[in-house]
Amino acid sequence: MGNNEAPAVVVRDLHARRGKHPVLHGLSLTVPRGIVMGLIGPSGCGKTTLMRAIVGVQIVQSGEVSVLGEPVGTASLRRRVGYVTQDASIYDDLTVRQNLAYFRAVLGVPRGDIDRVIEATDLGSNAGQLAGSLSGGQRSRVSLAGALLGSPDLLVLDEPTVGLDPVLRVELWGLFHRLAAAGTSLLVSSHVMDEAARCDRLLLMRHGEVLADDTPGGLLAATGAADIEAAFLTLIAAHPVAPGEEAP
């Protein structure tokens, strides 16, 4: 078991390629315990590659990643970290409940947990439906429900609110904060800037590098911007990409 005081995630000088394309070049960051950490940045900036490295499914070229005080790849982390991919990774030819029942069996958590996560993701009326017959937003909630099983210590959520209506989006952010208040650490990526304001802390990424690591309030104060989007644009202007450095 890792040190309980260790941060949720520590990344040091991480280099990684997605396919053959270098995406992360010397990235370092820390995600503290028990907060909702937002990972914000344009498409293609390396958010997904970073998240894959943190859950241990990404081959990395160099650098260190430790999760909950243990080096990534440690077998015991696989039940302590919940991962939701950008596209819902669920079995379309199983019902919602059958999907969750399989994930539950693999995680080895009590059966009663299935009802808890179905309720938390508001899927009660769809539990008997085939996942393939659900809407995009419902499918991503099934995927999220699977990650909530067993109450993992760290949740890594890649754009979990894409395709959701505003009401549901607010509900899910409420859920994220309740989980954080109960001690769960969350790393949530988004390219929607208005969601950034809901995070306890923000990592702004561009071209595989961290531009800023601050609270939303701190970010606004530091840049003098009126909202997160403007703050992001100010930061980009302050860190111009040198010619020929577009894809470093």
Binding site: G56, A75, R79, I90, F103
Partner: peptide, 13 residues
């Protein structure tokens, strides 16, 4: 292709 393989391998399977 659907990403479930990657998901399962990130779990204790």
């Amino acid at each position: 292709r659907t990403g479930t393989l990657e998901r399962m391998l990130s779990m204790p399977l």
